[in-house]
Simulated assay, not measured.
Amino acid sequence: MVVFACARCGAVLTAAVSRIALPVHARQTYGHELLPALMEPGTYAVDPEPSGPPWRLWSEIGADEAEARSVFAPVSALSFGAPGAIVLAPGDTRGTVLIPERCDGYCMGLDGRDGPNLACAQCGQAVATRIDDCSYWQTVRLAPDAVRRLPTDAPARRTVAWETLVEERQETPPIEPPGVWSPRWEAAAGAALAHLLAASAGTPVAVPDGLAANTFGRALDALFPPGPPAKRVALAGPALPAPDLAPDIVLVPRHPQTGRAWQPSGTAVAVPLAADVWMYLAFHNERSLVPVTGGTPEGVLRDDPLPMHPWRLFRPDSGVFLHTLARLPAVRQPWLRGIYDRVKAQPYARPF
Rank of each mutant, 00 (worst) to 15 (best):
residue 206 A to G: 05
residue 141 R to S: 12
residue 67 E to S: 15
residue 182 S to H: 11
residue 147 V to T: 09
residue 2 V to R: 13
residue 94 R to H: 11
residue 42 G to C: 10
residue 329 P to F: 13
residue 138 Q to V: 09
residue 36 P to K: 13
residue 264 P to D: 11
residue 109 G to R: 02
residue 204 P to D: 10
residue 258 T to H: 12
residue 174 P to G: 12
residue 345 A to G: 08
residue 47 D to G: 11
residue 70 S to V: 08
residue 132 D to I: 11
residue 251 L to Q: 00
residue 44 Y to W: 12
residue 263 Q to S: 13
residue 292 V to C: 08
residue 54 P to H: 04
residue 207 V to E: 06
residue 179 G to C: 07
residue 177 P to K: 12
residue 68 A to G: 15
residue 34 L to R: 14
residue 15 A to N: 14
residue 291 P to I: 01
residue 208 P to R: 08
residue 34 L to Y: 00
residue 111 D to L: 09
residue 68 A to T: 05
residue 142 L to C: 05
residue 100 P to A: 14
residue 145 D to S: 10
residue 102 R to W: 05
residue 139 T to Y: 04
residue 209 D to R: 13
residue 221 D to E: 15
residue 304 D to R: 13
residue 97 V to R: 15
residue 22 L to K: 05
residue 119 A to P: 01
residue 200 S to N: 03
residue 336 L to K: 01
residue 121 A to R: 15
residue 324 T to C: 06
residue 33 E to T: 14
residue 27 R to A: 15
residue 226 P to V: 11
residue 107 C to K: 14
residue 40 E to H: 09
residue 270 A to P: 06
residue 218 R to V: 09
residue 130 R to F: 04
residue 198 A to D: 04
residue 187 A to V: 10
residue 2 V to I: 12
residue 200 S to R: 04
residue 109 G to N: 09
residue 221 D to C: 06
residue 156 A to K: 06
residue 66 A to P: 02
residue 80 F to W: 11
residue 335 W to H: 06
residue 24 V to T: 15
residue 52 G to T: 04
residue 169 R to W: 08
residue 13 L to A: 04
residue 205 V to N: 00
residue 276 D to P: 07
residue 301 L to V: 02
residue 290 V to G: 03
residue 195 H to F: 14
residue 336 L to A: 02
residue 212 A to I: 14
residue 76 S to H: 14
residue 62 G to W: 12
residue 182 S to M: 02
residue 290 V to R: 15
residue 138 Q to K: 15
residue 69 R to D: 07
residue 302 R to D: 15
residue 145 D to F: 02
residue 165 L to F: 05
residue 155 P to H: 06
residue 143 A to G: 04
residue 154 A to T: 11
residue 189 A to N: 06
residue 21 A to P: 00
residue 185 W to T: 08
residue 304 D to H: 13
residue 34 L to P: 00
residue 109 G to L: 07
residue 164 T to W: 01
